[in-house]
Design a binder for these strands. Structure first.
Length: 614
RNA sequence: GCGCCCGUAGCUCAGCCGGAUAGAGCGGCGGACUUCUAAUCCGCGGGUCGGGGGUUCGAUUCCCUCCGGGCGCGCCA
């Protein structure tokens, strides 16, 4: 990530399109006393400095690719390790263990602060075993950073426009769209944690034929006529027709049905997204682009600049000049602009509104559009890789052990609202954030609902609630945390305690890496680990000890540091951090009750299920 | 045919820009509640990291190839 300070991070190929790199030098935000992000690297920089000194003293060059110091994976290997000797072996023509031994003996002359001992291990690693004191400093860092713990200024001030969901307004949001809602919102939080100014945006495709067809279906239902050939036959259309009649009475024409239907769907989308805590800054209407003439203007500009040409009454963008196999149509021979033309106009508008970096989260079925849009944007602006498109794989809904696939067109879908009727929003959100968006997700309704007591959400929330509970107990005893400066943190030496601190130490890296990789699920992975470690600590280490006020104080602070970690990570994921958990009784007989087949998937459903994927 | 994603323990998935004996949850078996909520903790069993090459001191991780699965390559959105 961004902290390429002191030690080199090789610039590897990322599987995703290039990321905005921090262009300005890191400058801490003024209102923050001091970031852990900055301080956490102190230990590594400190060790690197020492190591660099040892290299010089031993008359060794910097290893190719730079010096690296990493946290070890196994406790027996100490706290940090360097592979410097391994990397140096070939260049210097000496066995790696010899080099490592030389480094160690030099370092041994004056052990760096916090270092207990050094050793040569394995093929030639140098392992740093540290005193727990360094972890006690981590605790201080966490507490000092408070709510901003782990945050960074890496993207300070960068204006990011993040478009997600953007499902067609032809039906309620289904489970597929819900995944992008959870992921997009968490990604927005994540980028904000790195200092970016993130604008959440939903593109409303209210201009195309899809909406016409939907309006026809609604009107047909309303008039109890048969549906058009490729109409929308989902039950929700019937529902809507019923409500429309109740609200507006009989005798509506198609245009009225269209307007009412559109407004109603928009309200549903807004409400359903609100139920899982997702709120957009802008709902951008595609129709408005056409009405303002932006789409025509884009086409005219391409024609004027010679980047487009007219043949057989259609306008083509010369993407073949960009190394593509074929050109792309901007305006059909019937005079109507293509989806691409509108999309270009839309993304130009985002730039014009001052957003420096554009990110779109789309479902994998829209992959075919990525290149067209990016090339067209490059031809219009000279900027490549704009927008950055994050593609996510589908959600497969499973119920009663069977995959259920149906599109909005052909029948019912399991909507987000349906899911939220059975599962609380926290469970839904975290479930969507459990795994990488590169893998298709199996959303098993029965597992997510019935088995909720073993859900990771509760595991994590319970850990947070336990901390709150300790706080309440402490308050009952009028036991308050004393100022940190008066507390002897060196009493924290239990392996459970140190594990917690190591986990907290890793958090700034996790956040920064997750943000850069556009992978919010990594935050989920981290917070689950923190929860696991906290439960272990809680079990083995009693916090409030009547006969040991000093240890009690340091453990209260440790618990507080953990609380900050939970609150912070859960906030990024958009999951609540409850103070209490309602006691689990034997009351809920987890039976599966209902059955209705369905499925859904799509991301930026420019169409929705366009041609019936089923 | 070409492109993108995936293929890790019975199941669902982590494993970050290569690092030293591959992790978690669920499921199975066996333990721990007079003490801050046992929605917890501890132990056991379980893996040719899809197959095969290559790069490297070192590959689950990078490259090539094959197999399997998902998705995409329109004057559709």
């Amino acid at each position: 990530m961004a902290q390429g300070r002191g030690y080199a991070r090789p610039t590897g190929r990322s599987p995703l399109p290039p990321r905005p790199r921090r262009t300005r030098p890191r400058r801490p935000r003024p209102h923050l006393p001091r970031h852990l992000t900055d301080r956490a690297f102190v230990i590594r920089d400190h060790l690197l400095d020492a190591l660099r000194g040892a290299l010089v003293a031993a008359d060794l060059p910097e290893p190719p690719g730079g010096l690296e110091i990493d946290a070890t994976r196994q406790r027996e290997h100490g706290d940090f390790q360097t592979n410097a000797a391994l990397k140096l072996a070939k260049a210097v023509g000496r066995p790696p263990r010899d080099i490592a031994a030389a480094l160690v003996s030099t370092l041994d002359e004056k052990l760096p602060r916090h270092v207990a001992r050094l050793e040569v291990a394995g093929p030639g690693f140098v392992n740093f075993h540290l005193e727990p004191s360094w972890l006690h400093e981590v605790l201080v860092d966490v507490v000092v950073a408070g709510d901003e713990y782990g945050h960074s200024a890496a993207l300070d001030g960068l204006r990011v426009n993040l478009e997600f969901v953007s499902a067609n307004p032809t039906g309620p949001l289904h489970a597929g769209g819900a995944r992008w809602a959870a992921v997009g919102d968490a990604l927005a939080n994540l980028l904000s944690s790195q200092g970016a100014q993130v604008h959440r945006e939903y593109y409303v495709n209210d201009a195309g034929a899809q909406l016409d067809r939907f309006a026809e279906s609604l009107h047909a239902r309303f008039k109890k006529q048969k549906l058009p050939e490729d109409g929308y036959r989902g039950a929700y259309v019937l529902d809507m027709a019923r409500r429309m009649r109740a609200e507006l009475g009989n005798g509506l024409d198609l245009e009225q049905a269209r307007e009412w239907g559109h407004a109603d769907i928009m309200r549903q989308l807004h409400d359903d997204l609100g139920r899982i805590g997702v709120h957009f800054d802008t709902w951008f209407s595609e129709r408005s682009l056409h009405e303002r003439g932006d789409v025509d203007a884009v086409i005219a500009r391409f024609l004027a600049s010679g980047r487009a040409f007219e043949t057989d009454g259609a306008v083509w963008l010369r993407t073949s000049e960009m190394g593509e196999e074929r050109d792309r149509v901007l305006r059909r021979s019937d005079g109507t602009p293509t989806y691409l033309a509108a999309d270009v106009a839309y993304h130009l508008d985002k730039l014009a509104r001052g957003h420096a970096h554009l990110i779109d989260i789309w479902g994998a079925d829209h992959q075919g559009q990525v290149r067209s849009l990016q090339l067209a944007m490059e031809m219009a602006t000279g900027r490549s890789q704009t927008p950055e498109v994050v593609l996510g794989q589908f959600v497969t809904l499973v119920r009663h052990g069977r995959e259920v696939r149906i599109s909005k067109r052909t029948g019912n879908v399991i909507t987000l609202a349906d899911i939220l009727d059975e599962v609380d929003a926290d469970v839904a959100r975290l479930t969507f954030l459990l795994q990488s968006i590169d893998t298709k997700q199996i959303f098993d309704i029965d597992v997510v609902t019935a088995q909720s007591m073993e859900n990771p959400v509760y595991y994590v929330q319970y850990a947070h609630a336990r901390i709150a509970s300790i706080g309440r107990r402490a308050a009952e005893r009028s036991l308050a945390r004393r100022p940190l400066g008066e507390v002897d943190l060196s009493l924290l030496v239990h392996e459970r305690e140190l594990d917690l601190l190591r986990t907290l130490f890793a958090y700034p890296d996790v956040l920064a890496d997750a943000a850069e990789a556009r992978a919010p699920h990594r935050v989920t992975t981290w917070v689950r680990e923190l929860a696991g470690r906290f439960h272990g600590f809680y079990h083995d280490c009693r916090v409030m000890l009547d006969d040991d006020p000093a240890l009690t104080q340091s453990r209260l602070w440790l618990a507080e540091a953990c609380r900050l970690g939970f609150a912070n990570a859960l906030a990024i994921l958009g999951v609540s951090a409850p103070e209490t958990m309602s006691r689990l009784d034997e009351t809920d007989d987890t039976d599966d009750a209902d059955g209705s087949p369905d499925e859904a998937s799509d991301g930026r459903s420019h169409d929705d299920s366009g041609a019936d994927r089923a």
